[in-house]
Simulated assay, not measured.
Amino acid sequence: MNLYGLVVFHHVASTGSVTKAAELLRISQPAVTAHVRNMASELGFALLAPKGRGIFLTEAGERLAGHAARLYALQQEIDRDLADYRTGAAGELRLAATSLPANFLLPKLLSVYRETCPDVLVSLLTLNANEAMESLLHYEADAAIIGGGAPDYPGLCKQLLGEDELWFIAAPTHPYAQRQVAFEQLMQEPFIMRESGSAAREQLLALCRVHGTGAPRAALQVSGVHESLHAAAAGIGLTLVSSLEASAAVARGELVRLGVKDLELRNAIVLFTRENEALPPAANHFVQLLLHDAAAC
């Protein structure tokens, strides 16, 4: 059955006129008549009968008109849905992020985004850096936002969004609180280590390689920044975190920042997307908002 023929028949049935149907569809009257004639021939029923200067629907025509009306309504719904999808007003936004952007960067931006795109289904996975990029490569996310920077990744594009500081922190009772110490001296202390694959762990180990020291002794390994902060506040050991993550606890006096001689650490926040692939419209809308916010900072 010719679906466009059903659309044509719907316009004839709803207007009661071949002429009006042709005007609405912007095709010729003979073309409308041909579509209706072909439909009737295919079904084996007369669909229209003359009525004075107009037409009326036969019983078969009435039944077909009901189906055609539903088909036309579905076509209109499809057109509206895809138009919304094309503009980014509908669809899905799937983000993967490490703890820093997931907790301190994305919530405010997602709130703004939701105001303009309330019908988009938004999901945010909080993962370590390796997991976030793997989720992007396996099409489980449309974009990955990594705090702590990350090396180039095959198949992915990287853009710098901004930077903050990295701090060594400890409980206020730690012997090095309120003192300036050498990095090598700090590495003799027990540390709260993040899990393998996390940006924080990789940053710390990279610093050890640069300074020619061994990795610090792990007093505890955890799998999240909040666990790191709580363990440090309990006096279990030192840890390396973003200033954004630790500043509130430091301001409350629960933790202290340790001074390290001749060392200032910057913490990159980067955006990853798949290389040579256009983002889905909803994701592209959010990424443009993210990049605009980063440029304004």
Rank of each mutant, 00 (worst) to 15 (best):
L125P: 00
A129I: 03
E131S: 15
E131D: 13
M133F: 00
S135D: 06
H138K: 13
H138V: 10
E140W: 02
A143L: 10
A143F: 00
A143E: 00
I145C: 06
I145H: 03
P151S: 02
P151C: 01
Y153L: 05
G155V: 02
L156H: 04
K158P: 04
L160T: 06
L161N: 00
G162H: 07
G162C: 06
D164N: 12
D164H: 07
W167I: 04
W167N: 02
F168C: 11
I169H: 02
A170F: 09
A170D: 11
A171D: 10
P172I: 07
H174F: 00
P175C: 06
Q180E: 12
Q185F: 04
Q185H: 11
Q185S: 13
M193Q: 15
E195K: 04
S198D: 14
A199T: 06
A200G: 14
L205K: 09
A206T: 12
C208Q: 09
V210I: 12
H211T: 07
G212F: 07
G212I: 09
G214H: 09
A215P: 15
A218M: 15
H226C: 09
S228Y: 08
S228C: 15
S228R: 11
A231Q: 04
A233P: 07
A233D: 04
G235E: 05
G237F: 08
